[in-house]
Design a protein around this nucleic acid. Structure first.
Lengths: 201, 201
DNA sequence: TGTACATCAGTGAACGCGCGTTCACTGATGTAC
DNA sequence: TGTACATCAGTGAACGCGCGTTCACTGATGTAC
């Protein structure tokens, strides 16, 4: 069934194989040669589509941030009525995203794996961040959240959720937080506490 | 001046060289051979003191967590009068610690670099975490902070500060947060917001 | 104090490893006429 | 429709790399008598 010689969609196929590979073997098991292998192509073929390994990883990360953005947007749009409720949902969605694809999440956050031209990546990351900023603006417009700079407050929220995700992934929590339910309740505790701190008084 | 042949304190010397090396070249530039080189010893010598590379890294991480614990204790003891003020100081100290030794901090949080027997490491990490828990208990005793489980609340705090540190180190903040002053004020914003969320109402 | 010996902490050569990357190549594709 | 040719996307052999680790070894140290 497979086209002989010319592949046709190797660029895409490499990205797909790469995403699968990183999920299966983690960031450290990720090699260009194995990506090529899994895409059914010689190990030199990828060089026609990516300058080097770092470039492939960067493209993967860009796509991952786009997926994160979509996840956050969906979560935001399909959640409860109150703006603050929606903000909390965003936090939960972030942690879930991280825990559902731990290695991919790790790869997104390892700048040293990527190539030196970070514009695309930063733009994709920024786009995901904007969802959070918008949600905070919404809360402020409704008079529910203090009137600090939205992007500063967003960074506060992002820090808390990112920290929780990273701690859970690195297994440092020293908490028996392995079951999805426990993770969920921890995430709720973090978002809840944070929200209390953000509310107008 | 150097003892010929027998070194005398190679175990210690390797740890010191390792700490220096990771600071200079980062986690990726860290090789056993280079550690040996910098300790002025052949590349096989370390194997008389550490089972393998992972074991050396684990020992480094254990020491780093001990240093973190000390940093946190000092910060806690030498800070303001109110328990909540002291709690915030702890948060600032954590972020400062991370930003002052970025590579070492990264190494502390990369379980995949370490050997398979994590007891010592977990104990050291736990000891640092206890400082935070104690501080929260103090706040609760003074009736200032809500009466949730102290270790859960501590994890909330840790998440927030850890997240901020990691985001700053990975340069993902999308904020121009490079000067120490900006970092400081971001950290204050995070701790402040969090504290508001923790206060009794 | 001197000698015999076990133990220990170094040395330096060697191995295997799989990787990322380059290279000259070749087969396939598309286009101009 | 057929032919000539440029371009492109693959192939597979090869290179260099420095690493982690092992090994047989040897010089130094400490102890028993």
């Amino acid at each position: 069934m497979k086209r002989d010689y010319h592949h046709g969609h190797l660029h895409r196929a490499l990205l797909d194989a790469g995403r699968k590979l990183v999920a299966e073997r983690g960031v450290d098991g990720f090699t260009l040669r194995e990506v090529a292998r899994q895409a059914g192509v010689s190990h030199a073929a990828p060089y026609h589509h990516f300058r080097d390994k770092a470039a492939l990883i960067e493209s993967l990360a860009v796509e991952s941030f786009a997926a994160l953005e979509k996840t956050l947007r969906d979560a935001h749009e399909n959640s409860g009525t109150s703006p603050t409720e929606r903000l909390c949902t965003l936090g939960l969605a972030y942690v879930r995203f991280a825990l559902e694809r731990p290695a991919e999440f790790t790869l997104m956050n390892r700048p040293e794996l990527r190539s030196g031209h970070p514009e695309r990546l930063e733009q994709a990351a920024r786009a995901a961040f904007e969802v959070l900023i918008d949600s905070i603006r919404e809360c402020q417009t409704a008079g529910l959240v203090v009137e600090d700079a939205p992007d500063s407050l967003a960074l506060v929220c992002w820090s808390a959720m990112h920290g929780l995700a990273v701690l859970l992934l690195d297994g440092l929590s020293s908490q028996p937080a392995n079951s999805p339910e426990q993770v969920e309740s921890l995430a709720r505790l973090v978002t809840g506490t944070l929200l209390q701190g953000l509310l107008t008084r």
